[in-house]
Computed example of a mutant assay.
Amino acid sequence: MTDNTDLLRRIDRLESLDAIRQLPAKYSLALDMRDSDAWVSLFPEDVQVGGGKSGRKALRDWFDETMGQQFDGTSHHIGGHVIEFIDENNAQGVVYSKNEHETGAEWVIMQMMYFDRYTRIDGRWYFQRRLPLYWYATDLNKPPIGSRKMRWPGQPPYEGSFHDLFPSWQAFWERAGKAHDAPVSEPAPIDGFIDAMRKDHPLPRPRVR
């Protein structure tokens, strides 16, 4: 009888990839439709909310307050999604998001990405953590040229953290115009592309609006 262990492992990996890939899409749909119960169900029961609070109820309270006070409407468009497994029940990923926000008299567009951790509990995949990293936010009619590209109505402009997850951005500009003689790195392991790019770089602490 043929050993099906490897086949079952590969099927599980494919099913897990699909389940994880749907998480950001479900997140965006629930957020844009203001279904806070559906939105918080994408996180574990003991999700950490901040300020010493935890749990889906606390996260739902934050959602209802934030979405009710800041935005008249939103639309989140999911882009490229890199997913890598740490083990069979834990994974990490980077996913792009292009967002639109109706906020009072202004229509604010935003480009960002999330650095995610995913975990599987009782056979179901959840967000364990989402680290938002912003490039710009600005009125639709005001291109975000120059520095301090995070430009929300009624707030001083500030820098986002879009490029701070990986050290390559700063290194590129430091060597701009100079000879680059270092040998080309070997391709990263299949589940090691993100870590290979990060090079143990510390996590940024983005400013949240």
Rank of each mutant, 00 (worst) to 15 (best):
W169K: 06
E174I: 06
I86G: 08
W125A: 14
K142L: 04
R120P: 01
S168P: 03
F172H: 11
G104H: 06
R151N: 10
R175I: 10
I83E: 04
E88D: 15
N90G: 02
N99P: 03
W169Y: 15
A91R: 01
T119R: 13
T103F: 01
Q111A: 14
W135L: 15
W173R: 06
P156Y: 08
G123E: 10
S147V: 13
E100T: 11
R120Y: 09
N90A: 12
R175L: 10
W152P: 11
A176P: 01
P157T: 05
S168D: 12
L165Q: 04
I83Y: 01
T119K: 14
G177P: 02
V95R: 01
Y158I: 12
A137K: 06
T119C: 15
G80D: 08
V94G: 04
Q111M: 08
V95N: 04
E174W: 00
G160T: 09
F85V: 09
I145P: 03
Y118L: 03
Y118R: 04
W173A: 05
P167I: 07
H101D: 10
A105K: 08
R175Y: 00
Q170G: 08
Q92V: 10
A105R: 05
F127C: 00
D164E: 15
H163R: 09
P143D: 02
Q170T: 12
S161I: 05
V95Y: 00
G160C: 03
T138A: 15
M113C: 11
V94D: 08
Q111P: 02
Q111Y: 00
F162K: 02
R130H: 00
F85L: 13
P157Y: 10
K98S: 14
K142S: 11
T138P: 02
A105Y: 05
W125E: 09
G104N: 05
R117G: 00
Q170K: 10
I83S: 05
H101I: 07
K149D: 04
L140S: 07
D87Y: 07
S147T: 14
P157C: 10
V82S: 09
R117V: 02
M113N: 09
K142D: 05
I109V: 15
Y134L: 15
P144N: 06
Y136P: 11
D139R: 02
G93M: 07
P143K: 03
A176W: 09
E159F: 06
A105L: 07
F166R: 00
E88W: 03
P144C: 07
Y96A: 13
T119Q: 13
F162M: 11
R124T: 14
E102D: 11
M110K: 02
L140G: 04
I145H: 01
Y114W: 13
H163T: 15
T103W: 01
R129M: 10
P167E: 04
A137H: 08
I86S: 11
F162G: 14
A176H: 08
E88A: 15
Q92K: 14
S168R: 14
H101W: 00
